[in-house]
Amino acid sequence: MPPREARLIKEDLERLLASLIERGIVDDQNFPLLRQVGREAYEITFEGAEHVAVGMGDDVDYDKMYHDLAGRRCFSAKLIDGGLLQLMYSFKGGHLTKHRLAYYPSPDLSPFREDPESYLHDALFLDIVSRRIVPFPLRFDFDESAARDVHHPRCHLTLGDAKGCRIPVSAPLTPRWFIEFVLRHFYQTPQLDLVSALPAHKHNFAATITANESKLIHVVVPQAAIT
């Protein structure tokens, strides 16, 4: 039997995906999988996740990386403007040991917020974009085993896949927090309120930031009210 926390996280993710599909913000998706990978070791992943490594190469052009991921359907969800979400969690002995929560925007299409009307109305020539966008991926990683005080915060945010960019984060992120983060900062518009329609928070992870790390500029994951 998978640990309670893992089941909660999977349910959280499933509910979120259903809600985003219903709103027409997610165009394509893979079912979340919860499986045992060792003694007392479980992971939440998705079909196609075996290709996730193509997104980790050092010398791969972002354009190519994105198309490899999209082409192999290596995502938890594909958003309305081609942005990809990947959510993966690992558990051992009943608690979280790792997570990898990534957002890869499309290098070809204009970001949703530039023209939400055309996106929502499925305009025919939406893909005709002349300005080359400078899209950058972002990732919230949590890794207990690799952590080193200040140098490698347990939970950190990496922007644009920049080497050594590990902005400390106060606690691991639930799917609910991660998806809200992406929607709020890249999709929400004054006319289209995506965030408040999201399903309620179901879980909180305990803080993992060290005293030294919290003296630096860092990202705080609030404790949500659980309903």
Partner: peptide
């Protein structure tokens, strides 16, 4: 086309919840 997204959403979500994979043919059909 203007309302396809929002109106097809509930059907897609219901199928998804029953484990039936589906997708919306978008601008970006890879």
């Amino acid at each position: 086309p203007r309302t396809a997204r929002e109106r097809l959403g509930p059907i897609r979500a219901a199928l998804y919840e029953q484990g039936i994979q589906n997708h919306l043919a978008g601008v970006d059909t890879e």
